[in-house]
Simulated scan of single mutants.
Amino acid sequence: MILLEHVSKLFQTKNGVIKAVEDVTLHVKQGEIHGVIGYSGAGKSTLIRCVNLLERPTEGKIYIKDKEITRIPNHELREVRKKIGMIFQGFNLLKTATVYDNVAIPLKLLGFHSKEVKARVEKYLSIVGLEDRHFAYPSQLSGGQKQRVAIARALAQEPEILLSDEATSALDPETTDSILDLLLKINRELGITILLITHEMHVIQKICDYVYVMENGRVVEHGTSIDLFTRPTHPTTQKFLNTIAQRRISSNLISQLNLSGQVLRLTFVGESTGKPLLAEVSQKFQVKPNILAANIMELKNGIVGNIVIHLVGKEGDTQASLQYLRSQGVGTEELGGSE
């Protein structure tokens, strides 16, 4: 559905060339939700604006449904863009227009008949849960309601692809969850492919099938959500995970607790999250696992649990217990304390 091949975007400034995006390749299959995560300045916004050529890449190719849009004339590009909706962090609503008109005006500009405009506006305001707010103005809406209007406006053109540029970063956590639930509903019920950018790991956790981690314009790690939440390899990915999961114990805490022996992080995936494996190892081997921290995370396509333990026992017994845990699908990693 969306394919970027070796895309780069350079900006010429008075201080030299800035590589906003450098040699990025990604592939979003039809019906999937892919997320691009990175800190400010990583190149995320430039990348997503390249997808519909709001920013033309300096190098590389972009395909939408097997059509290379980087080579087509402008009149063909306009037709392609009609099937690509986009929502933004700032909502971009007309302040002097009602909710109804904010959704209707783009359709009118595209030449839709008044009956079709009315039908589409009512349909998509209903889908986003604003069927009773037709005559309200943006100033009368909450942030979440404004974003729902923006989503309805994007959906009213009945796109096959929806691009989301930090659409939840200005919202409180509860409202963010409601918008993410709405995006999941849109993906599931309407079959719309979604590519989003974010700096919030919670967004990735809740709705994404596949993830790309960006830093300094490059994709430094990518994989399924399950892969990245269980086996992150790049320091940037690990830092993001630390914002939502207790994955490390500080060296100061280890010192204060006077812990000798091994401090480990155990990662449980899928069925292993529901098994009493720590109880089993304490019975099978001469070890005592002392739980220091734990959490469980529900991803879109699975469950991941993290437990930080202090494992007390003789070397041979601890190694045997760890081997048993690994045989049960549990990831093990010795922790040396946080940085």
Rank of each mutant, 00 (worst) to 15 (best):
Q147D: 11
P73E: 02
T193G: 09
V36E: 00
G144R: 09
L3K: 15
P232Y: 00
N306S: 11
I127W: 03
I105S: 11
A154H: 02
E221F: 02
E339S: 08
R326E: 14
E280P: 07
G302P: 02
T267K: 09
S225G: 12
K108Q: 13
P73Q: 04
R56D: 06
Q286P: 01
K19V: 01
N92P: 10
G129L: 03
G305L: 05
S8D: 06
L259N: 12
T58Q: 05
H113E: 15
Y63E: 09
E339V: 10
L107P: 05
G35N: 13
N242P: 05
I2D: 12
K44Y: 01
A97G: 12
G16I: 09
D181Q: 15
V220M: 04
L257M: 14
T175F: 06
I84W: 14
N295I: 07
I179S: 00
K239W: 02
G35C: 07
L77Q: 05
I197F: 11
H34K: 15
V213M: 05
G331E: 08
Q238I: 04
I87S: 03
M86L: 01
R78F: 02
H27A: 04
E280C: 03
L110N: 12
R78W: 10
L299K: 08
L47H: 14
T233F: 13
R120W: 08
R78H: 03
R148D: 11
E315V: 15
L110V: 01
L93I: 00
R81L: 03
Y100Q: 03
L190W: 03
P173V: 02
Y124Q: 01
E315D: 15
N187L: 09
K185L: 04
L109A: 06
S169E: 04
L228G: 07
R56P: 10
E221A: 11
L130C: 06
F285K: 13
R188C: 12
P57C: 11
Y210C: 11
T46E: 01
K284I: 02
Q205N: 10
G144F: 06
A156R: 01
P159T: 13
Q262H: 10
L47Y: 07
E158Y: 05
P173G: 11
I226K: 02
G43Q: 14
I204P: 12
I197T: 03
H134Y: 13
I84G: 13
Q157D: 12
L3W: 06
K118S: 07
G313V: 05
L180I: 10
H75Q: 10
I291H: 03
H6D: 07
L266S: 11
D317E: 15
D209N: 09
L171R: 05
E55H: 10
V7N: 01
E55Y: 03
K65F: 08
E59L: 08
Y210L: 00
H6T: 15
K300G: 09
V219G: 08
K19S: 06
E166H: 04
Q283A: 14
A97Y: 13
F229E: 00
A294D: 09
L183E: 00
L4R: 06
K284H: 04
I226L: 10
Y100A: 11
V269S: 14
M214T: 06
E280G: 13
T70N: 05
V330L: 04
T46G: 01
G85E: 02
L171V: 07
